[in-house]
């Protein structure tokens, strides 16, 4: 049975349909590709975001120009960004990952910058009085105390990255977006639904995990 229209299906039929889509579209492999791109993109967004956050904190005069530029990137629609990257990176995984990173840097960098700049003065004061150097205050006090906010930025980045990586299916990046693309090309409603819902579940789980980490950090620091 090919699911080209929605009718009332029994539980067994639904299960059989999921199995059909899963094997025909190689969803296990697609999921791995998807998570691989997601992980790489998030890892580099984190590195770049935190680095930019720390640099702008140490040189506040760069904060405005840098965040304004990142904001402009943020306003480009994601499909347009993928197209803009084509001449440089071609098609496939690389431009997808690059686009994800470009989108995700801003929330992480901005939250890092805000977190580092807004650590309550009393904590900084006592750290100075105890005899910590400026560098020690940054790494031992400001940075750990900013972690809940940085985690909040990463959580936003998780959602962005998940969206862009899925879109990468359009430019031959593989991943679950490719399976979704197949479903759309063939007008295979079963594939569209199963893959779509699966992507949704993954996104919710990853966002939930990021939210949990954020929450744990907030509770630990007694907020």
């Amino acid at each position: 049975m090919k699911g080209d229209k929605l009718t009332a299906w029994s539980f067994n039929e639904i299960f059989a349909e999921i199995q059909r889509v899963w094997t025909s579209q190689l969803l296990s492999q697609r999921t791995l590709e998807h998570l691989y791109m997601f992980a790489i993109a998030l890892f580099f967004s984190f590195l770049a975001g935190v680095l930019i956050g720390v640099l702008t904190y140490r040189n506040p005069r760069f904060a405005d120009p840098i965040f304004n530029s990142l904001n402009i990137v943020e306003t480009i629609p994601d499909i347009a960004l993928l197209v803009l990257l084509l001449p440089v990176f071609g098609i496939g995984k690389t431009p997808t990952i690059v686009a994800s990173i470009l989108y995700s840097i801003l929330p992480i960098a901005r939250n890092t910058y805000t977190g580092l700049s807004n650590v309550p003065g009393e904590h900084i004061e006592i750290a100075e009085a105890l005899g910590l150097t400026r560098r020690e205050i940054l790494f031992k006090i400001r940075f750990p105390l900013s972690l809940p906010l940085i985690a909040g930025g990463i959580r936003i980045a998780v959602v962005f990255t998940m969206g862009v990586v899925t879109l990468g299916g359009l430019i031959a990046a593989g991943g679950l977006g490719a399976a979704l693309q197949n479903g759309i090309q063939l007008y295979d409603m079963g594939t569209i639904l199963v893959t779509g819902i699966w992507i949704g579940i993954l996104a919710v789980l990853l966002d939930g995990a990021a939210g949990l980490i954020e929450h744990i950090l907030q509770v630990r620091y007694g907020k």
């Binding site: 904590h123 750290a127 100075e128 009085a129 105890l130 005899g131 972690l147 620091y221 007694g222």
Partner: peptide, 21 residues
């Protein structure tokens, strides 16, 4: 050196200032 001086001085304040993390 101010850092050395402060590490040779015990400092206690009213709101205690324990570092929450």
């Amino acid at each position: 050196d101010p850092i050395r001086l402060r590490r040779n001085t015990g400092y206690v304040i009213q709101n205690i200032g324990l570092l929450p993390h």
